[in-house]
Write a protein that binds this DNA or RNA. Structure first.
Length: 565
RNA sequence: CGGGGCGUGGCGCAGCCCGGUAGCGCGCCUGCUUUGGGAGCAGGAAGUCGGAGGUUCGAAUCCUCUCGCCCCGACCA
C-alpha cells in the first residue's frame, strides 16, 4: 500500500473525548472514528488489524472443530420471552418494533437463537457433540460506554455454543474451547491469564475468563504461581481466619466522634489502624435492610454479598433516609451493637478484639468492643474482596493482585436454556435427552484496544507482529527529489510485496520527521529507510519498532531480517 | 440512573465573569525556498459559537428549555 493512496489522516493532538491510552492512540493513529456514544467506524487501518484478529480467532475455532455460521443480529421477542430474559435483561437490551408492531431486539448475545437452531436441527445423539460459532456485531446498551472500543455499545464478538448429550461431554467441549482460546491469545501475542469467574447474567456452572493483563483493566484478578490458583477478585474466596482472638484488654466505651463518618477519618481521630475498625454497611434486602459487617481495611464484594439470604440483587446500598429511619443515625455511625436487622459478619471480623464500631448515634462510636462480652460472637461468612498477600484457598500459597481486561469468557451453561426452550435429542435408548450447552465468547474489537494497552510507548502503538496492519513500512528520504531513492524504494516495495509481505510505502512528499513520527504512531513493527547516502554503499537502515537504535543492513538482507526463518 | 464537567473552522484551545468587528496553535489549499526526527516565508479556504426560545438597539457572552459528549459510581466480550 502506498501511503498517499491510503486515505489515512493521523492526529497530532489527542481528541478530548479519549481517556485511556488505547483510545487516544486509536483516534490519533486513525484506526477508528466515533459516530456517537459507544459507536465507532473502523477506518481502513483499524480494519486491517481487526481482520487479522478475526482470522486468528476463526482459524483456531475451525481447528477445534467448531462450525461457523451467522445468525441474525435482530431477534424476535418471542425467543427471549421463552427464556425469561426479555424481562430479565433490562435496559441493556436494545428493543425495537417492526412495522407490524412486533417486538424485536438487537442481539446482545445469541443463546436463544442458537438454542432454537439446536432444537430444530438436532434430533439424535449421533449429531453430538457439535459446536457452532459466529463472528458478529452485537449491541448492548451499556449504561456508560467508555474507553473507546473497550466498552462500546456496538462491538464485534466471536460467540460459540456447544451442545452435548451429558455433563462429561460438555466438560470435554469446554476443555476444547479452553485450549483453543489459549492458542488464540498466544498467537495474538498478548500476555494473559485464565481466571475463575462469576457466570453472571448468562447463568450456568463453571466459567472462566481470559484476561489480558493491563493496568487500565477494569477487572482485578487474584492469582498465585505456587499453586496455580487464579480467579477474578469478584469470585476469589477468602479463607476463614483460624487465628485466636486476643483477650479483651479494655472496657467498652461510647465516645464522641464528631465528623468522622469514614474509616479514614476515624483512624486519624483515634490514631488506630483501619484493621481495628468494624465497618457496617447497610444494603437493601427483600424484607427490609440488611447489615454487612467487614473489617475497616477491607472492601465489600458485591457478588458475595448478593448471595446472602435476604439481600437483593443487584446490590444496592440503603439510602441515608432509610438508615436514619431504621437505625436512627446517618451512615458512618452504624454498628452491630443493638442492631435489630439481619447482620452478616465477614470471616476476618472474627479475630478482632478491642475494636471500634459505630454506636448507631450521630457522631458517636464505641471503642473497646469485644465479641462474647459486648456482642454475641458471630458466625462468619465470606463477604469481602481478597487482597494482595491473602492466602489462597488451598492454603499453600499467597495471592497477588493484578488488573486485567476481559477479552474472552467461557461458560458451562448446562441445561438452563435447553430446558427452557425444550432442546432435546434422542439418546441411545430412544429417550428424549435435554442438551448440555456451553457458550464461549471473545471480544474481537476489544482485543484491539487491549493489545494497544499492553503494547505502546510514548511515541505510539507497538503492534504484535501477528496483528500489525502492515508488517513493514518503507520510508524513502527525499523520494520526490532523488530519482535514485525513488527507484530503489519502488523496487524494494515490489520485491517485498512479491514475497507476500504487507508493506506500506510512505511515498508522501513530506519531511522525514513527519514520516518517522507517523510510522511510530501507527506502530508498524519493521521500518526500512531508503536514502541516497545508504544507496551509495548498498545499504538500508533497519529498525524494529521496539529497538532503541537503527542499524545499517545490506540491501539484500532486508527480506530475511523481516521474516526470520 | 444519580453526581461533576464540557459543547466556538478537521483537531487542540482562548474569548463568556464585565454583551458591541469571532480569535490563536496545529492541520488543509496555492506559490517559492527547504529536506535524516512533526520546516520557513508569503498568500488563501474554512465557523448556523450544539439547538430552540427569551432579554436587549445589539447575544458566543445574560436567562429558560433542550440535545449531544466526556468524567466519577452499580454491568459485561
Amino acid at each position: 500500500m502506498r501511503f498517499s493512496k491510503f486515505g489515512l489522516t493521523t492526529l497530532r493532538d489527542t481528541p478530548a473525548e479519549a481517556e485511556i491510552i488505547s483510545h487516544k492512540l486509536m483516534l490519533r493513529a486513525g484506526l477508528i472514528r466515533r459516530l456517537a456514544a459507544g459507536l465507532f467506524t473502523w477506518m481502513p487501518l483499524g480494519l486491517r488489524v481487526l481482520r487479522r484478529v478475526e482470522k486468528i480467532v476463526c482459524e483456531e475455532m475451525d481447528r477445534a472443530g467448531a462450525l461457523e455460521l451467522i445468525m441474525p443480529a435482530v431477534q424476535p421477542a418471542e425467543l427471549w420471552k421463552e427464556t425469561g430474559r426479555w424481562d430479565k435483561y433490562g435496559n441493556l437490551l436494545l428493543r425495537m418494533r417492526d412495522r407490524h408492531d412486533r417486538d424485536f431486539c438487537f442481539g446482545p448475545t445469541h443463546e436463544e437463537v442458537i438454542t432454537d437452531i439446536a432444537r430444530r436441527e438436532l434430533r439424535s445423539y449421533k449429531q453430538l457433540p457439535i459446536n457452532f460459532y459466529q463472528v458478529q456485531t452485537k449491541f448492548r446498551d451499556e449504561i456508560r460506554p467508555r474507553f473507546g472500543v473497550m466498552r462500546a455499545r456496538e462491538f464485534i464478538m466471536k460467540d460459540a455454543y456447544s451442545f452435548d448429550l451429558d455433563q462429561s461431554g460438555l466438560e470435554q467441549s469446554y476443555q476444547a474451547m479452553h485450549a483453543a482460546y489459549t492458542a488464540i491469545f498466544e498467537r495474538l501475542g498478548l500476555k494473559f491469564r485464565v481466571v475463575d469467574a462469576d457466570s453472571g447474567e448468562i447463568g450456568g456452572n463453571r466459567s472462566q475468563e481470559f484476561m489480558v493483563l493491563a493496568d487500565s483493566g477494569e477487572d482485578a484478578i487474584a492469582w498465585c504461581d505456587e499453586d496455580g490458583y487464579a480467579s477474578n477478585v469478584e469470585t476469589a474466596a477468602t479463607v476463614p481466619e483460624d487465628g485466636k482472638r486476643a483477650a479483651a484488654k479494655v472496657n467498652l466505651e461510647k465516645i464522641e466522634t464528631p465528623k468522622t463518618k469514614t474509616v479514614e477519618t476515624l483512624t486519624e481521630l483515634l490514631e488506630i489502624g483501619p484493621d481495628k475498625i468494624l465497618k457496617t454497611l447497610i444494603v437493601e434486602g427483600k424484607k427490609g435492610p440488611v447489615a454487612l459487617v467487614i473489617r475497616g481495611d477491607h472492601e465489600l464484594n458485591a457478588i458475595k454479598a448478593c448471595k446472602m439470604p435476604n439481600v437483593t440483587e443487584p446490590l444496592t446500598m440503603a439510602n441515608p433516609e432509610t438508615i436514619q429511619e431504621i437505625i436512627g443515625c446517618t451512615p458512618g455511625y452504624v454498628g452491630p451493637i443493638g442492631l435489630d436487622i439481619p447482620v452478616y459478619y465477614d470471616h476476618a471480623t472474627k479475630c478482632m478484639s478491642d475494636f471500634v464500631c459505630g454506636a448507631n448515634e450521630f457522631e458517636k462510636h464505641y471503642i473497646g468492643v469485644n465479641f462474647g462480652r459486648d456482642i454475641k460472637t458471630p458466625t462468619t461468612v465470606d463477604l469481602r474482596n481478597v487482597k494482595d498477600g491473602d492466602p489462597t484457598p488451598s492454603g499453600s500459597g499467597t495471592l497477588k493482585i493484578a488488573r486485567g481486561i476481559e477479552v474472552g469468557h467461557i461458560f458451562q451453561l448446562g441445561q438452563s436454556y435447553s430446558e427452557a426452550m425444550r432442546a432435546t435429542v434422542q439418546d441411545k435408548d430412544g429417550n428424549d435427552a435435554t442438551l448440555f450447552m456451553g457458550c464461549y465468547g471473545i471480544g474481537v474489537t476489544r482485543i484491539v484496544g487491549a493489545a494497544i494497552e499492553q503494547n505502546h510507548d510514548e511515541r505510539g502503538i507497538i503492534w504484535p507482529e501477528s496483528i500489525a496492519p502492515f508488517k513493514v513500512v518503507l520510508i524513502p528520504i527525499n523520494m520526490h527529489q532523488s530519482e535514485t531513492v525513488r527507484e530503489v524504494a519502488t523496487t524494494l516495495y515490489s520485491e517485498l510485496k512479491a514475497a507476500g509481505l504487507d508493506v506500506l510505502l510512505d511515498d508522501r512528499d513530506a519531511r522525514p520527521g513527519v514520516k518517522f513520527a507517523d510510522a511510530e504512531l501507527i506502530g508498524i513493527p519493521h521500518r526500512l529507510v531508503i536514502s541516497e547516502r545508504g544507496i551509495k554503499v548498498g545499504q538500508l537502515e533497519y529498525r524494529h519498532r521496539r529497538d532503541e537504535e537503527a542499524k545499517m543492513i545490506a540491501y539484500d538482507k532486508a527480506l530475511q531480517i523481516i521474516t526470520p526463518s
